[in-house]
């Protein structure tokens, strides 16, 4: 069963002069075995939305269900939902609290009742899957570099092996090797029929790795579909604050000028289209 978000709205500081509506009537479904990317401009409501998925924020209006369980103020249900939906925060410092990497990563599994060899295996597997060197086990996570801290934050959620992995801007601060490791991790999770929900402002990355893309603008759903459907929609309709990846923008212009046969965000694909287009023209 999936995560179903139905007609979700949320307003910060309701009734105050600083009232801000973060989400307006958002609906979508996140299936297991899929990588769903949520993209949108700064302040479009992405982080507010994902914090709803494990009940950190409870819906003000609308409904969310996780595998049939409703996200609402029922402690026993919320405990099940939080075991099922693991959220990696936007800033590792918001999440990390322990004095050693080992304590940090084992905290989740210990809370769910794991111990001994099984616990050790969970910690090691989580570290390996995100390229975190085992020699760092005794290190203080706060003394690590930005990229390593991010890996600790991801490993600590991964260690509990949640059914749905939700990551808020996980690539910020990662080098190219880190991003590659992260992408292969997301693919592995999806291949194991786990759900992956990934917030990013990098539309190009989203187009490259996702099964589905949800585009948020000013708190509303501006597009929802496969990467191809999303790319087509975005080339047709301008969304304030959302910049098209350069290769996609170029392919769209070339198509309008009749110089290529379709749109794409892949440089090698566009190169092929351009050379084919030239052959036809001459």
């Amino acid at each position: 069963m999936p995560i179903i978000v139905n007609d979700l709205s949320f307003t910060y500081n309701a009734g105050m002069p600083t009232e801000t509506t973060a989400l307006r009537n958002v609906s979508f479904t996140a299936e297991r075995g899929e990588i769903l990317s949520i993209v949108g401009h700064t302040g479009s409501g992405k982080s507010t939305l994902v914090q709803h998925l494990n009940g950190l924020i409870l819906p003000q209006s609308g409904k969310i269900t996780v595998d049939g369980l409703s996200v609402r103020k029922v402690p026993s249900d919320l405990r099940k939902i939080r075991k099922s939906v693991g959220l990696v925060f936007q800033y590792p410092e918001q999440q990390i609290f322990a004095e050693t990497v080992s304590d940090e990563i084992s905290f989740g599994p210990i809370n769910w009742g794991y111990s001994g060899r099984e616990l050790d295996k969970m910690v090691f597997d989580a570290m390996d899957s995100i390229g975190l060197d085992r020699s760092l086990l005794r290190s203080n996570p706060f003394s690590l570099s930005g990229g390593q801290k991010r890996r600790v934050a991801i490993a600590s959620v991964l260690a509990s092996d949640p059914e749905y992995l939700v990551l808020d801007e996980p690539t910020a601060g990662l080098d190219a090797a880190g991003i590659r490791e992260l992408v292969s991790l997301l693919n592995e999770r999806a291949a194991k029929a786990k759900g992956v929900i990934h917030v990013t402002h990098d539309l190009e990355l989203a187009l490259r790795i996702s099964t589905k893309i949800l585009v948020l603008a000013e708190g509303s759903v501006a597009a929802f579909g496969t990467p191809s459907e999303t790319a087509e929609m975005l080339c047709e309709k301008y969304i304030d604050g959302l910049v098209l990846p350069e290769v996609l923008a170029l392919s769209s212009e070339l198509m309008k000028a009749g110089m290529v046969s379709g749109i794409t965000w892949e440089p090698t694909q566009l190169l092929k289209m351009i050379t084919e287009g030239r052959r036809v023209a001459f």
Partner: peptide, 14 residues
């Protein structure tokens, strides 16, 4: 600037 643009969307980054 220490990766001061890492959390920004492409438009805000520009």
């Amino acid at each position: 600037l220490d990766e001061a643009m890492s959390m920004l969307d492409p438009a805000s980054r520009r």
